[in-house]
Amino acid sequence: MLLLIDAGNTRVKWALAEAAVAGMGVWHAAGSVPHAEVAELAGLWRGMPIARVVIANVAGPRLREVLQAALDAAVGDISDNTRPPVEWFVSSAERAGLRNRYRQPAQLGCDRFAAAIGARALFPDRALIVAGCGTATTVDAVSADGEFVGGMILPGLSLMTASLAGNTAQLPQVSLQADAAHPFADHTDAAIVSGCLAAQAGAIERALAAYRTAQGTDVACILTGGAADLIAPQLSVAHERIDNLVLIGLQTVATSSC
């Protein structure tokens, strides 16, 4: 089986999946931990029937070291010649049927490329806007004929609210559960959340409108990431909410012949 790992800026998500396209997005086991608890994953993974590991890591070299140590500990009783191969997924000019049109393909965040691959696997032959709503929010365009066109990056919802609290004298750090249903809030906490949600939704809707105009056809909007549940109700456009899109992309990569 495949061990798929999405090492993001805040948390590490993982899933144990079939090495077959028919099982796309269906996990035999899965979990998510903050960076501080990554070492504990060794105990969870020990004894699992892992034949291959594919990892997307955007959290830097230190987390890579911790993940590698956890993997080593998990398969420590397996001889070297039977240890599962590990691929540290990186963006490239083309992978799993998706062509990367970044000027320097390797500079594209591997999580963005994996999410785009996953979205295309779920919605083949569709023009797509893929919005990843995490620590940063990314909004990327994928063409119907299989090109990662490019996209935008902006601070995620939590970063936006934290920036206001950290860089102004009188605005508080707010809970993202504050009531933001009304665009004209009558207290400061809700006003901050409402404004930041509007900024997130506005960026996604603007990208969708621009890409629809450029394509001259319908474009599907896909949302993923930890803040997607907060942002999705603010959108005035049709959209699909997909969990674990990076992991689905990694599974697509692992089951692809190219």
Results as ranks from 00 to 15, higher is better:
residue 162 A to F: 01
residue 163 S to T: 12
residue 116 A to C: 15
residue 157 L to E: 09
residue 165 A to I: 05
residue 116 A to M: 08
residue 133 C to G: 05
residue 113 F to R: 12
residue 117 I to K: 11
residue 211 Y to V: 08
residue 128 L to K: 11
residue 110 C to M: 12
residue 177 Q to T: 13
residue 135 T to Q: 14
residue 182 H to D: 14
residue 146 G to S: 04
residue 189 D to G: 15
residue 207 A to V: 14
residue 116 A to I: 05
residue 188 T to M: 12
residue 105 P to E: 10
residue 150 G to C: 03
residue 121 A to S: 10
residue 137 T to V: 15
residue 131 A to Q: 07
residue 190 A to M: 08
residue 105 P to I: 09
residue 107 Q to S: 10
residue 159 L to N: 02
residue 161 T to L: 00
residue 168 T to S: 03
residue 131 A to S: 15
residue 124 P to V: 06
residue 209 A to P: 06
residue 137 T to K: 08
residue 150 G to D: 08
residue 103 R to H: 14
residue 141 A to Q: 08
residue 141 A to C: 12
residue 169 A to M: 06
residue 143 S to D: 00
residue 157 L to W: 02
residue 129 I to H: 01
residue 104 Q to R: 15
residue 182 H to P: 09
residue 196 C to F: 02
residue 214 A to M: 07
residue 106 A to H: 09
residue 137 T to C: 13
residue 177 Q to M: 10
residue 175 S to H: 07
residue 177 Q to A: 15
residue 177 Q to D: 15
residue 119 A to G: 06
residue 129 I to K: 04
residue 211 Y to C: 06
residue 186 D to L: 14
residue 150 G to N: 09
residue 105 P to R: 12
residue 105 P to G: 09
residue 126 R to K: 07
residue 126 R to I: 00
residue 170 Q to P: 01
residue 206 R to D: 02
residue 160 M to G: 01
residue 160 M to E: 04
residue 179 D to L: 10
residue 151 G to W: 05
residue 200 Q to P: 06
residue 185 A to T: 13
residue 196 C to P: 06
residue 128 L to P: 11
residue 129 I to L: 05
residue 120 R to S: 11
residue 135 T to N: 13
residue 123 F to N: 00
residue 203 A to T: 10
residue 210 A to I: 01
residue 170 Q to D: 07
residue 114 A to C: 03
residue 150 G to H: 02
residue 109 G to H: 07
residue 101 R to K: 11
residue 104 Q to E: 14
residue 119 A to F: 02
residue 186 D to K: 14
residue 116 A to G: 08
residue 214 A to C: 02
residue 181 A to Q: 15
residue 209 A to L: 13
residue 192 I to P: 00
residue 194 S to G: 09
residue 136 A to H: 12
residue 177 Q to S: 15
residue 106 A to P: 03
residue 157 L to I: 10
residue 143 S to M: 00
residue 110 C to W: 04
residue 110 C to Q: 11
residue 162 A to C: 05
residue 146 G to C: 05
residue 133 C to L: 14
residue 165 A to Y: 00
residue 189 D to R: 14
residue 165 A to W: 01
residue 128 L to E: 08
residue 132 G to Q: 10
residue 102 Y to D: 09
residue 138 T to H: 06
residue 174 V to G: 10
residue 214 A to G: 07
residue 157 L to A: 05
residue 152 M to G: 01
residue 103 R to S: 12
residue 105 P to W: 05
residue 113 F to N: 13
residue 205 E to Q: 12
residue 110 C to Y: 04
residue 126 R to M: 04
residue 196 C to V: 12
residue 148 F to G: 03
residue 172 P to T: 02
residue 181 A to L: 13
residue 180 A to R: 07
residue 145 D to E: 13
residue 193 V to F: 03
residue 103 R to M: 07
residue 193 V to Y: 07
residue 202 G to A: 02
residue 204 I to C: 03
residue 171 L to Y: 01
residue 161 T to G: 00
residue 213 T to I: 06
residue 170 Q to T: 11
residue 170 Q to F: 05
